[in-house]
Design a protein around this nucleic acid. Sequence first.
DNA 1: TTAGGGTGTTGCGTATAATGCAACAATGTT
DNA 2: AACATTGTTGCATTATACGCAACACCCTAA
Lengths: 256, 256
Amino acid sequence: MSKNSSTTIQTVGRIANILRCFTESEADLGVMQISRETGLHKSTTSRLLSALHQEGFVEKSAETGKYRLGLGLVNLAGVVLERQNLHQAAQAYIKSLAEFTQETINISILDGEECINVESIHSPKSIRYTGRLGRRTPLHCTSTGKVQLTYMSPEQRQKILSQPLGAYTQHTITDPITLRIALAAVCDQGYAISNEEFEEGLVAIAAPIYDHTGEVIAALSISGPTYRMDSNTLQEFALPLKDAAKMISGQLGYIS
Amino acid sequence: MSKNSSTTIQTVGRIANILRCFTESEADLGVMQISRETGLHKSTTSRLLSALHQEGFVEKSAETGKYRLGLGLVNLAGVVLERQNLHQAAQAYIKSLAEFTQETINISILDGEECINVESIHSPKSIRYTGRLGRRTPLHCTSTGKVQLTYMSPEQRQKILSQPLGAYTQHTITDPITLRIALAAVCDQGYAISNEEFEEGLVAIAAPIYDHTGEVIAALSISGPTYRMDSNTLQEFALPLKDAAKMISGQLGYIS
DNA sequence: TTAGGGTGTTGCGTATAATGCAACAATGTT
DNA sequence: AACATTGTTGCATTATACGCAACACCCTAA
């Protein structure tokens, strides 16, 4: 399966495809593996990788000779994360939220037609949802995604809802009309819930974070397994969640 | 000033130079600004940026038309950070260390001849050291750097110490002999201190984190302003710091 | 209003730079 | 030991990215 993204500059697309080959489960890759996955000639792959190596975008294991993503990327990502003042603004509040709930806390922002995690504190419990930094999740079946859908521009929402909505579990809402009704409820309540709509056994609740212009720029969520996140617990969590989101918004200059 | 890094593949070097133009203080850049800084023709710059945009490595502000680093980088960096199990292993311990000390906690790992921050909790105090994710710091004048220097291979240490040691402040140790003596002390005590050697008014103390093979893979540090981090306080912090580092090492499979 | 400096994008012909080939070295495997 | 697989490198070729220049857009100022 070759990943394609037609680009004005070929090399940029090739580099992107190479870098995207690396995942959590496939962290170390050899030249041939990448060559096969991208459809590039092995010599080309070898040369691109060695160039990426020089720039610190990938590392090369001395023992195995395999490549892995490099710390240069962390360096650049740090600049991105710092830009959103979210990190500093949120830290105190998500920490106390994590302590109170004992569940995993995430903050994610909208990137195109997906959510991307920019902040996360894991639950101390062994059974937990781990939303790692940089992870992308769909919009229509996650709590944070629903928040984003609720507060985005009508045109953008229309565009996304007019595409087929993938069924991740039996509970995923795949009908745009039903989803729109759910989003209306989000608007009323000020929070969104995803009840095993993205992953079996996973329940989450999310609330919007506003910036100084009054726009929703992120969503704060609590995620946990079904058996700990029953409807009573969700009720109990809703207010602290909304409070924390409001406090973070305040830090960003939002006047409610 | 044009940044050069001779690479086997020109485009990779150019892309790297472009991406490195973006910093915290200069987060939004126009085509011409980047063109000037990299020495690339403006048309080339424009095309490279638009290609990078398509791949999500940069974003383009709709209002200003300026570019900024994109979330695609966060995505890739997440894979890197997840690889080190540090994040999960450390979280509980650095949180309690942060609470106990009320100062900024960082974890940094060695990357080439620098340290790079992979984890940080900011002090709640308004006067604080903020070691953002992905930030690079020198080895010879930081607490974490000294830890890394102490436990690296003699050849590597020799190589670094044979280069000129930059004076960041009046207190920076620039004499390799003096530094070697200081490192010997680190080995004895199990922790390193940087007393305004990197930045005026900044004091830090760091201890090594070991992985399951018994190698030092990271350093855990507490940083704060001089007036709060006097020698008594440092003494008081040393043991909890070493304990936390030991516990994290244990999580990574280290048997002491 | 027009003129003007600065910026960002795009078509086009050219020349450079990246490519694929193939041979080689370096592994690991039967 | 023979084979299979992988990763690297020299070299000739051509496809690719380049620089030019013209254009389209802001702005601000006169």
